[in-house]
Design a protein around this nucleic acid. Structure first.
Lengths: 237, 237
DNA sequence: AAAGCCAATTGACTCAAATCAAATTTGAGT
DNA sequence: ACTCAAATTTGATTTGAGTCAATTGGCTTT
């Protein structure tokens, strides 16, 4: 699928009004630096299902997610897929040392990213250690999440996986949009299964079971968390 | 178990003779910086089974592994364990953003580390962006490995897990000590099981099966890789 | 060399999740 | 509203890996 690369704004002033200004990689920059920085990035839109970059592609850009949700995944040669994470606004993508992306990234629904060409971005970082420090913080935070996810994949039951996922996903949305017991799930059941190391059938059955037990209510495009305490207990945090 | 904190060398000159000089975090430092750097670290020994630090402990030090093997793991409240990685010479441990370790680390056999107190190390980094860059590189490399491991845990069969582990472990030892088809396995079967998201019995049975099929030979303290090509095929890389 | 101990292996059986197979719901396009 | 395709749910059955239970093998200690 081809990306709908549409530059919404020329290299005008938008960083200071950016939705992720405080949370993203750019939070490490002062006003003066930001003015210079916004000439480096351009906003690009992707429709649902479009691939932003693929594993093994040469890295030509870095991406700052501004809006929407992305699935980050790796494929085995026979087609088995493991989703290694979902990217939300504020997430920074594209860092690697091999010069190639080590996972693929698809838009789930409409996505807006701030795209930076690799070379100028690299030059900009060069004499701004606080930006490097910020990127390092984000990498270390991701590493911690990755380790948590290893525990989930290696040592948790299907019920625990699903409960942990719902709570963790809610947590991320709360940090982004504020508290709500209604949890939108823009990704498909297959995406959830591939994130949790399960099959779509097991995810579906587990959702149904949680609903039967009054823990959640399955609503259009998501779930409603009726009994967070019970969900926590099931997650065996 | 209490660490046998034995300072082998006072704050004398040893960095330039250090075994991991080229590979570790210190490879980013020039000779002059190295002289200053070696006053920050001290060598500490641990015996097999000793815990170097535990998850949720306040981070007071960073560690550079000089010698030996460590298991890095997380525990669930009910005792289930997931090993998130094995640390080898050159690996740098202790980075986090919460101020607490996000996994525990035990020595497997005798281990020597270069230990740095957090505060002075942090100050030293402050005006040396190339060291920060090096640390960032190591974090990004680990992140990539973590993602590979997620694929293994979520989507691979027991046979694939074991074959992938043996090849990956061999690869790391090759990078460290040069090529050999004899692969020492200093960790227990339980450690391997907890790394692969399996039980000890399944690991043992899979080893036996690989031996029956002539892929490996189980030797004392490790395996001999008789048929690397077949192992690769089984790993379904 | 016998006893004790722990790690590893092997065997018998079970079970959680996968697979195979419909049925049903949802959504997009006409 | 109607059609078709895709996504999801549900049911029946299978199976890979787990559990439980010995047994074996290597060391260490006596």
């Amino acid at each position: 699928m081809k990306p709908s690369v549409v530059m919404i704004e020329p290299n005008g002033h938008f960083c200071r009004d950016c939705a992720v200004r405080g949370a993203a990689v750019c939070s490490s920059l002062n006003a003066a630096e930001l003015t210079e920085f916004e000439h480096l990035g351009r906003r690009v839109h992707f429709d649902g299902g479009e691939t932003v970059f693929s594993e093994e592609d040469i890295t030509t850009s870095f991406y700052n997610v501004l809006e929407g949700v992305m699935r980050l995944y790796k494929l085995l040669p026979d087609g088995r897929r493991q989703i290694v994470g979902f990217a939300l606004p504020g997430d920074f993508l594209g860092m690697n040392i091999s010069g190639r992306h080590n996972f693929s990234a698809d838009a789930i629904g409409v996505v807006t990213v701030c795209q930076f060409a690799k070379a100028p971005f690299g030059r900009f970082i060069e004499d701004r250690p606080q930006l490097l420090k910020r990127i390092n913080e984000l990498a270390i935070r991701e590493l911690s999440q990755a380790r948590d996810h290893m525990v989930l994949l290696g040592r948790r039951s299907a019920d625990e996986k699903v409960a942990t996922f719902l709570l963790g996903w809610r947590e991320r949305l709360v940090a982004l949009k504020g508290l709500s017991d209604t949890v939108p799930l823009p990704m498909s059941r297959q995406d959830i299964a591939d994130y949790l190391g399960l099959t779509i059938e097991t995810v579906s059955r587990t959702f149904t079971k949680l609903e039967r037990h009054g823990v959640i209510e399955i609503i259009h495009g998501g779930i409603s968390l009726l009994d967070p305490a019970r969900a926590e207990a099931l997650a065996a945090a």
